[in-house]
Amino acid sequence: MTHLPERLLAGYRNFMAQRHAAESERYRTLAREGQAPETMVIACCDSRAAPETIFDAGPGELFVVRNVANLVPPYRPDEQHHGTSAALEFAVYALKVKHIVVMGHGRCGGINAALNPAAKPLSPGDFIGRWMGLVTPAAEAMAGNPMMTAAERQTALERISIRFQVANLRTFPWIRSREERGELSLHGAWFDISTGELWVMDPETGDFVRPEV
């Protein structure tokens, strides 16, 4: 009997034989000197949209926090548990990251739940329903548009939500002040799982455009 699924153990063996063997010195340096990534990525939990894979990042290059639908709750220093806010605080204060990227993706299950709150297996009373309440106003506006197909509403809300999350980042006073001083840049991006295309949010217009590759 193993303590982990065999697929994970096999993957670990490949990691040790290949990547770790090729970058062993880098890992030793990171262990000795600590991490110093310049970029934080707030991404979705979806197994199909891993930032380290999409951006071909090596160990120590990205500080990643993942949650359902890549959401950023507004700044609210109370007695509740705030995992994403805690990660932001660590990234900004301790790591002094220079960039924060909110990266959404196509066919997001969380966004679909926001558009269809009564759909099984999720219900508005459970954790996901409450969590996705952060985009409820935009979701209700999308759901009420009869001129759009379900797929169009999904993609539109995925991108609109990214703009909302970037705006929520600016409710954190220590993020807003650093951005105003030019010490920190905020970005939005959307990844199409089906085609592999990456769309980047224009900081001036909010439009999503394809970067040159």
Results as ranks from 00 to 15, higher is better:
His3Ser: 15
His3Arg: 15
Pro5Thr: 03
Pro5Gln: 03
Arg7Val: 11
Leu8Arg: 04
Leu8Met: 12
Leu8Ile: 14
Leu9Cys: 11
Ala10Phe: 10
Gly11Phe: 05
Tyr12Trp: 14
Asn14His: 15
Asn14Tyr: 09
Phe15Ser: 11
Gln18Val: 13
Arg19Gln: 15
Ala21Phe: 08
Glu23Phe: 10
Glu23Lys: 08
Arg28Thr: 01
Thr29Leu: 14
Leu30Gly: 00
Arg32Asp: 11
Glu38Ile: 07
Thr39His: 09
Thr39Arg: 06
Met40Tyr: 13
Ile42Asn: 00
Cys44Trp: 12
Cys44Ile: 01
Ser47Cys: 12
Ser47Asn: 12
Arg48Gly: 05
Pro51Leu: 02
Thr53Trp: 00
Phe55Glu: 02
Ala57Phe: 02
Ala57Gln: 02
Pro59Val: 07
Phe63Thr: 00
Phe63Gln: 04
Val65Phe: 12
Arg66Ala: 11
Asn67Gly: 09
Asn70Gln: 09
Val72Phe: 04
Tyr75Val: 01
Arg76Leu: 13
Glu79Trp: 07
Gln80His: 11
Gln80Lys: 07
Gln80Ser: 14
Gln80Trp: 08
His81Lys: 01
His81Asp: 12
His81Ser: 13
His82Arg: 14
His82Gly: 04
Gly83Ala: 15
Thr84Arg: 02
Ser85Gln: 10
Ala87Trp: 02
Glu89Ser: 11
Glu89Pro: 00
Val92His: 04
Lys96Ala: 15
Val97Tyr: 10
Val97Lys: 02
Ile100Cys: 06
Val101His: 06
Val101Asn: 08
Met103Asp: 03
Met103Gln: 10
His105Pro: 02
Gly106Ser: 15
Gly106Phe: 02
Arg107Val: 09
Cys108Gly: 01
Gly109Cys: 03
Ile111Asn: 00
Ile111Trp: 00
Asn112Leu: 07
Leu115Ala: 05
Leu115Asn: 04
Leu115Ile: 03
Asn116Ile: 02
Pro117Ile: 11
Ala118Tyr: 04
Pro121Cys: 09
Ser123Ile: 06
Ser123Glu: 05
Pro124Cys: 04
Pro124Val: 06
Asp126Trp: 12
Phe127His: 14
Ile128Ala: 06
Met132Gln: 12
Met132Ser: 03
Leu134Gln: 14
Val135Ile: 15
Val135Cys: 06
Pro137Gln: 07
Pro137Ala: 09
Ala139Val: 01
Ala141Pro: 00
Gly144Ile: 07
Asn145His: 07
Met147Lys: 10
Thr149Gln: 01
Thr149Val: 05
Thr149Ile: 06
Ala150Trp: 01
Glu152Gly: 00
Ala156His: 00
Leu157Trp: 02
Leu157Asn: 04
Leu157Glu: 03
Glu158Cys: 06
Ser161Cys: 04
Ile162Thr: 06
Arg163Glu: 00
Arg163Pro: 00
Phe164Leu: 15
Phe164Tyr: 10
Gln165Glu: 10
Gln165Cys: 03
Asn168Pro: 01
Arg170Asp: 01
Phe172Leu: 03
Trp174Lys: 01
Ile175Ser: 07
Glu180Pro: 02
Glu180Ser: 07
Glu180Gln: 13
Arg181Ala: 15
Gly182Asn: 13
Leu184Asp: 10
Ser185Gly: 08
Gly188Tyr: 05
Ala189Thr: 11
Ala189Val: 10
Ile193Lys: 00
Ile193Cys: 05
Gly196Met: 13
Glu197Gly: 02
Leu198Gly: 07
Leu198Asn: 05
Val200His: 01
Glu204Tyr: 08
Arg210Trp: 05
Arg210Phe: 05
Glu212Met: 13
